[in-house]
Design a protein around this nucleic acid. Structure first.
Length: 703
DNA sequence: CTAGGGTTAG
């Protein structure tokens, strides 16, 4: 049995060195700090390293380092302290200059330089430094060398090589070294190896437990993570801030509000509520759980905020449908002097798209381009592209896409989604074909849920069938969304038989597949099948939602099932507790109108709790055209021109109503669009088209 | 001189 190494944590002299307004004096036995204003002296600490010379360390510039070193017999000790000080201040080049001044470096000095690189995130430089360390054959790496070095290993093969070195030198007995190994393996998903090392540790400090726990949390192993949490408790240890930061994202992912609240209580009970990381994690958790106000409260209470706090809050607003606040927070962030980073822009891009602000979109794009962020990583490029696509600006989205330094599945999916969402189904398929040619990207679930609807929109059955094959091959048919898209594609392409048989092969716990199937039957006018499916859905215990009723009511209106439609509308309000939206009211007006109950439809609109939009009045107008009610038609069109004066179709409808009622003199009263103002607008061509349609539609008929 | 933690499409 070997003895477990036990080391005291040294007090860091570097903490006490330079400070504005003070002069530091380092004596052989202790260090002094003199306040330059009051001349008061303060003893800082006793050094374990003898420093013979009288030294002033009043600044942090490298010249001072030189002045310290000159004539000092214990250069290594001073240099090492300076390297650490520079590392603490983030001045890596000064640290390196200072480091290079010593020819005969000891392990302590090498370790300091290594740690300085790792602290800055310069991992490759750290590994290079280690290589030089090994080459300088006179000294060996020690316990302190490996933990930062293992953190610097981005690739598993480097990590394994270091692991061998650790074993060769017998350093696996160190708590920090083995905890770093645990972390290395769990970060790379090799949880079994990590667990083996963890289990072999004879002593575990909080850091070891946290390393194992974060491994489980990040690899979505909730069960094992809980087990570790339980063990921590039974060892008599308490969750510290790091434990909490690992666990909170998992709590959010499991949508476990109760555990989240319990951890929040723990935080307050143990005085961790002032920890920056803990607060940031709490904001993120509450945002993911949809409790925006709680996140906002934490954010407002935070005394010190960093860029991550701002980013988290902006993302929280953006993800909880409050893009206006997200934009406002961004302005606040700038005004308090916090520098936005790449991830700020990722969230902001999404917020800008949600508020539909093309001007800001351009500004944001320029902001990122100026900082060269678009060539740095794909994440921000994808976000900017998505923003343009959501604003309907596919040209710029494509331009950003073409300029991306590398394209991943998300880039391709964003482009394809952009096309699909903007009704450009054939462009979406073309983009998919280009994607298929790239060997290094393979389509995923996000690809199929866009490509299949594109096929459905185009009626491209043959392509759709090919995609169905690929989906099955990749085992993605089992995914509810992908499976539903396949069913929907067959349904929309007219193969309701295939759609139905596949429908019964997918999981029908959620409303998604039911809605798709009901809508497909509705589109083909099979209202009775819709009703049957709906009843079946209720029998299966699936609670219908907003979309279910849109499909169902629209099927009823197309088939003229007046009573059924009314029944389901009541059912939605009373039994299902759903508040009808504009779409539902639209269906009902259409239903009443088509059945010729124009007065009832009008009464229905008057009783609506929400303001009717163009689609509602459009439905009335259409019904007036069919049933020849010129008076109500005129009234409806007045309302219509108030809300949507540019839509050509409505003018045509009104003209036709007058024409069929024989009221030719009124056709001149149909308001026309003032083209002079519209010449520069995208709708101009369409409106010009309207002029001809109106004339042809009416006057040819008369002759 | 050492670990462990946070934000990324649909």
């Amino acid at each position: 049995m070997w003895a477990f190494p036990f080391r005291l944590r040294p007090t860091y002299a570097s903490k006490f060195l330079p400070k504005p307004g003070y002069s530091c004096v380092v004596l052989s036995t202790h260090a002094l700090r003199i306040n330059l204003d009051t001349r008061e002296e303060e003893t800082l600490l006793n050094f374990e390293v003898p420093v013979r010379s009288f030294t002033k360390l009043d600044g942090v510039k490298s010249e001072h380092a030189l002045c310290v070193v000159s004539g000092n017999s214990n250069k290594n000790a001073i240099i090492t302290r300076l390297v650490n000080r520079y590392a603490f201040l983030g001045d890596i080049s000064s640290a390196r200059i200072t480091f290079n001044q010593i020819q005969k470096k000891d392990a302590y000095l090498w370790n300091s330089m290594l740690a300085a690189y790792v602290r800055r995130g310069s991992y490759n430089e750290a590994l290079e430094c280690y290589r030089q360390f090994l080459l300088s054959s006179d000294v060996q790496p020690d316990f302190y060398t490996f933990p930062p070095l293992l953190k610097a290993c981005r690739s598993l093969s480097d990590g394994k090589r270091l692991h061998c070195m650790v074993l060769k030198l017998g350093y696996e007995v160190d708590v920090f070294v083995s905890a770093s190994l645990v972390h290395l393996y769990s970060r790379n998903g090799l949880l079994d190896i990590a667990r083996d090392i963890f289990d072999c540790m004879p002593l575990r400090d909080m850091g070891s437990w946290n390393a194992m726990l974060s491994g489980y949390c990040q690899n979505e192993n909730a069960y094992e993570a809980l087990d570790i949490l339980y063990s921590i408790k039974s060892e008599g240890l308490k969750m510290d801030s790091v434990t909490i930061c690992s666990v909170l994202p998992m709590v959010a992912q499991l949508n476990d509000v109760l555990s989240g609240l319990m951890i929040h209580v723990h935080i307050i009970k143990h005085g961790l509520e002032f920890d920056l990381f803990v607060n940031n994690a709490l904001i993120n958790m509450y945002a993911k759980l949809g409790h925006l106000a709680d996140g906002q409260y934490i954010f407002d209470c935070m005394v010190t905020k960093d860029v991550v706090s701002w980013n988290s809050m902006i993302a929280a607003c953006e993800q909880n449908n409050d893009p206006i606040t997200a934009c406002w927070l961004f302005r606040r962030m700038l005004s308090v002097g916090e520098k936005p980073d790449l991830l700020t822009m990722v969230s902001l891009a999404s917020a800008v798209a949600q508020v539909n602000d093309s001007q800001s979109a351009l500004v944001l794009h320029c902001y990122c381009t100026r900082r060269n962020w678009l060539s740095d990583g794909i994440v921000i490029g994808n976000a900017v592209m998505d923003m343009y696509a959501k604003l309907g600006n596919l040209n710029d989205a494509k331009k950003v896409f073409d300029c991306l330094p590398a394209k991943d599945v998300i880039s391709w999916n964003t482009l394809i989604t952009g096309y699909t969402q903007n009704g450009l189904a054939s462009e979406a398929l073309e983009a998919y074909w280009l994607m298929e040619k790239c060997e290094y990207v393979s389509p995923n679930h996000g690809t199929w849920v866009n490509v299949l609807p594109a096929c459905a929109a185009l009626g491209a059955l043959k392509e759709g069938m090919r995609f169905h094959g690929l989906v099955t091959k990749n085992g993605l048919f089992a995914d509810v969304f992908v499976g539903t898209c396949v069913v929907d594609m067959y349904g929309k392409c007219g193969r309701l038989d295939y759609a139905m048989s596949l429908f019964y092969k997918i999981s029908r716990i959620s409303t998604v597949p039911w809605n798709a199937m009901i809508s497909c039957h509705g589109i083909h006018g099979h209202a009775n099948q819709c009703v049957e499916l709906f009843e079946e859905m209720l029998d299966a215990g699936v609670q219908p939602d907003y979309i279910t009723f849109v499909s169902l009511l629209s099927a009823c209106s197309h088939a003229g099932l007046l009573d059924k439609g009314k029944l389901y509308f009541q059912m939605m309000k009373e039994k299902c507790g759903l508040k009808p939206g504009l779409k539902h009211y639209g269906c009902m007006v259409d239903l009443l109108g088509r059945a010729g109950h124009l007065e009832e439809a009008y009464q229905f609109i008057k009783d609506m709790p929400i303001h009717p939009d163009a689609s509602i009045w459009g439905a009335v107008l259409g019904a007036c055209r069919v049933h020849g009610n010129a008076e109500l038609g005129a009234f409806a069109s007045e309302r219509l021109f108030e809300v949507d004066s540019d839509n050509v179709g409505y003018y045509v409808l009104l003209s036709n109503i007058y024409a069929s009622a024989g009221k030719w003199e009124l056709i001149g009263d149909v308001p026309t669009v003032d083209y002079s103002e519209m010449k520069h607008q995208p709708g101009y061509i369409i409106n010009q088209g309207f002029k001809n349609t109106c004339n042809c539609g009416i006057f040819l008929k008369r002759e």
